[in-house]
Design a protein around this nucleic acid. Sequence first.
DNA 1: CTCGATACTTACCTTAAGGTCAGTACTACC
DNA 2: GGTAGTACTGACCTTAAGGTAAGTATCGAG
Lengths: 130, 130
Amino acid sequence: MSTKEPPCGLDAALAVMGGKWKPLILYHLNSGPKRFGDLKRLVMGVSEKVLIQQLRELAAAGVLTRHDYQRVPPMVDYTMTAFGTTLARALMPLCEWGTEHRNKIAEIMRSPERVESASHSVNLGRSTTS
Amino acid sequence: MSTKEPPCGLDAALAVMGGKWKPLILYHLNSGPKRFGDLKRLVMGVSEKVLIQQLRELAAAGVLTRHDYQRVPPMVDYTMTAFGTTLARALMPLCEWGTEHRNKIAEIMRSPERVESASHSVNLGRSTTS
DNA sequence: CTCGATACTTACCTTAAGGTCAGTACTACC
DNA sequence: GGTAGTACTGACCTTAAGGTAAGTATCGAG
């Protein structure tokens, strides 16, 4: 019984969209195909190397397609697949939640709520913060 | 203009819920208060140390409260805050998406889609896979 | 000529995140 | 005595993830 499929598919979803920049990449691509340079500007703070890497992973996961126009200088665009679109749609409530609560979250990050019996500051770390 | 608040709150949301086990912790706590041991069994694969750590972080972020009954042996339970409940609700579409697509995702992870001009396997890494 | 644009690749580096293991303190049961 | 339960703490370790910097090749503009 302990090896049964879990009731919640969050682990599976996170296996696809997990990565520091992937959620934002998905958000931006959901509004239409984008060139590499567009994404670089829209996903503020991402390095070229990591952007390329995570785009490739998303492509490998069938979430987006990379279309190379075989030009010099290079010209490449990235488009959501139908599968990817369903994921982006499932991410929208989280996006909205974050937008609505952005001020509260910023405040909490500045001054985390005192945790009973411990009051060290929170490190939310590498993988998800910007 | 480039320092304006982003249109999408995913970064803020991820600042709160980012962490390998936090989404699943949130999912399980959404169905009612839980003892530490309950969570350890429900969130399969998590180590005690990391579970404690991420519970503390979620408490510091105001998502849940920790109630210590001051007993020996220790008796502690964790309850979602109203704020946390809004987040868990925002996560449900993603949970459902993952559940629906679990088979497809498992297949992709076994055999990632060929990426144009590269065909290396996908490593979805530490922070979000189980 | 230089610089800017395009979208990458590669070498190398740092460190945050998650983990194992040992320990804590008490009770109850065998 | 031992084991099991409760929920932690701290020391120590590994490595995945994200990053910087340098480089690639071509075109067009000044």
